[in-house]
Design a protein around this nucleic acid. Structure first.
Length: 402
RNA sequence: GGGGAGGUGCCAGAGUGGCCAAAUGGGGCGGGCUGUAAACCCGUUGGCGUUGCCUACGCUGGUUCAAAUCCAUCCCUCCCCA
């Protein structure tokens, strides 16, 4: 495709490209570019926040470029300090490998496997001698390292910074040297690291990579960035109805951004929706339904998307039981008779973590047995037939005898 | 190496001998409301078959009828000086 046209497609939804003219130049002279994308295998599950960058990589692949999915198995031993105010806990190497494998599988839900090369940076970083590390470190200064916002904040607030954390960005930059990458992608929180890659490449006599940053996606809470540790994430392997439900729970203000970054709907249509939402011509729930349906269709298929849409309507609109409810088989041998204490059952089924929590749920009117609100904490129930136990609005369990 | 400050619940942060399972805020959970698992309002938030008992305020030990609070050793963090 014509370089100018490609640039237009690549630019869509990006926050920053440094330098755009260099990118155009590379597109003209090289044709197919080597695009580096580094992954920190500290968490195994890819969520929609990660998908923003992955979708852009997919776009680059479709334009004929080659993506290097770089698993930072070595760097994970430090943990990326980006955006953190605390030192990360280092992971055990088996865990890192396991995460890497899971990550890779999940990434190919979005990326084109045929146009992706997967590499592990331990391959070269583990062999780097101390003297080479010193040479690498000499290319950057403490003062400049402290310019980095997260380090700066930690320094200002008198939070500890491990010396090894200073090395992290340098290792990531060194990866770019080893790969001789043309382009590196990341979220805006990666800007410093990506720029350092450029500088270190120059120090090693290479043409610097072009840096492309993508927006950070807020999680379901609507304010903080999507992350597993904050519990506001939507994983791309979550079961369809969870994915759908979580998408329905995003704050209304985020609808436009989610459409823009997570679906293939074109900009004109998204703009139109945003305008209609503002004018009250489009109900936010309707907009979210479409959003959720599109995203579930992408990761699964349109028929499951339709099914979960109906399920949502049944459960939350009509407040009825969903069609599919997981079962829990009570081991009757452990019971004296056919009766079981409700609090105990709640804990057994996992609908409540502790008995105290189970009590609380009952006291607050959050527990239903066969669609009847449970009022008595001492209730003993008979398990003669099949029953439905419900906690809150969205947790259901079919209780049967083993 | 010397001097100073500090380590409290999921997180932030009060409490400096009994009234402390520990204020307040955030988050979580439940309820109400709603064409939403949005927004908003209310409640709740260590465990235990629970008007009581057990375990908890960095670790260990001590003082005391009584310790998150006092003392000692140790571990960890930050600041200043070197």
């Amino acid at each position: 495709m014509d370089p100018e046209k490609q640039l237009g497609l690549i630019k869509k939804n990006t926050v920053e490209i440094i330098q755009e003219d260099e990118l155009l130049e590379k597109l003209k002279s090289k044709g197919s570019l080597k695009v580096k994308f580094g992954v920190d295998p500290t968490t195994p599950d890819i969520h929609l926040g990660h998908s923003v960058v992955l979708l852009k990589l997919r776009c680059l692949q479709d334009l004929g470029h080659k993506v290097i999915l770089l698993i930072g198995d070595f760097t994970a031993r430090i943990g990326d300090p980006s955006g953190r105010t605390k030192t990360r806990k280092p992971l055990a190497s088996e865990e890192i490998l396991l995460n890497a494998r899971t990550y890779r599988q999940q990434a190919f839900k979005i990326l084109d496997a045929a146009k992706t090369e997967v590499l592990f940076n331990s391959k070269w970083l583990s062999k780097l001698s101390f003297s080479r590390v010193l040479k690498l470190a000499s290319h950057y200064t403490v003062a400049r390292m402290l310019e980095r916002d997260d380090f700066n904040i930690r320094y200002q607030r008198k939070y500890p910074i491990g010396l090894h954390e200073f090395i992290y960005p340098l290792m990531q930059a060194y990866d770019s040297v080893v790969l001789d990458s043309d382009v590196e992608l990341g979220g805006t929180d990666q800007k410093f690291n990506l720029l350092l890659g450029r500088q270190i490449q120059k120090s090693y006599g290479q043409t610097p990579q072009v840096m492309i940053t993508m927006p950070i996606l807020e999680g379901t809470d609507g304010s903080q960035k999507m992350s597993k540790s904050l519990g506001n994430y939507i994983g791309i392997t979550e079961v369809p109805h969870e994915m759908y439900g979580k998408l329905m729970s995003i704050p209304d203000e985020l609808i436009g951004k989610y459409f823009r970054l997570l679906t293939f709907l074109n900009s004109e249509e998204i703009n139109l929706k945003e305008r209609q939402l503002k004018e009250g011509k489009l109900h936010p729930k309707k907009a979210k339904e479409e959003l959720a349906e599109r995203i579930v269709s992408f990761y699964y298929d349109s028929s499951s998307a339709k099914a979960v849409k109906e399920r949502f309507q049944t459960v939350f609109g009509e407040k009825k039981l969903p069609h599919e409810i997981p079962s829990y088989a009570v081991d009757m041998d452990k019971l004296k008779e056919d009766n079981i204490w409700i609090v105990k059952l709640l804990q057994l089924t996992g609908l409540a973590e502790t008995r105290s929590q189970a009590r609380r749920l009952i006291e607050q009117g959050g527990v239903k047995w066969d669609e009847e609100k449970v009022k008595d904490i001492n209730l003993e129930i008979s398990l003669a037939n099949e029953h439905i136990l419900q906690v809150g609005k969205r947790k259901f369990m079919r209780v049967v005898k083993k």
